[in-house]
Amino acid sequence: MERPLRLIPTEVTPAAELARTLEALLVVASQPLPVAELSAAAQAAAAEIEQALEVLGERFAEGSSGIVLEHVAGGYAFRASAAATEACARLFEKPVEKGLSQAALETLAIVAYLGPVTRPEITRIRGVNVDGVIAGLAERGLIAEGGRENEFGAIRYRTTPLFERIFGLESLAALPRVDDLGDDVAQIRERLETVAEKRPA
């Protein structure tokens, strides 16, 4: 009696099955998927999802695959490997981040740190009119309206998940601490106060 020769084991463990399901979900998604969504779609516990994601992270890693799994914008997503950059650049554009001006980045930084924040508040910090910059950032999808201020009903702006994706942030918490940026306000105040104190009473 002749039996077919089996070189590849056909049995699939439940963990491997779950990993395949997650792969499938991630390849369809065009935005990062949070663990909760993966869990609901794959009908598996969050802990199992995270285990499976770890397996996928090793498989889809820079250097071993053209597709790389990244933890970004509060979820998980596939991206092209850095090695494939040149080929990708021949075929695709990067319209969201293309030509972001210094003014746009400063405004974006203010919204990211202080958001939800109103236009007048941004204007006060930057010292110039930001209407055009705000409109441009909203058009790129990096910021969006996020409610209104109670007192005068001014629109508040916040950064979008796309902002986190473009800048490769797991969340807004991944931004550097405010204290690590620029001069310390207390330090500057101290110096100015020293100047003020020189004034005779």
């Binding site: 990244e70 950059t85 650049a89 981040e97 990211a112 930057r126 490769g168 931004l175």
Partner: peptide, 23 residues
């Protein structure tokens, strides 16, 4: 601070300039 944060974002953007993904 806003300026420094903008610089940080710029560097971050430069790091990811070469990465493509579906949006």
């Amino acid at each position: 601070r806003a300026k420094e944060a903008a610089n940080w974002l710029r560097e971050r953007l430069d790091d990811r300039r070469d990465l493509f993904f579906r949006i």
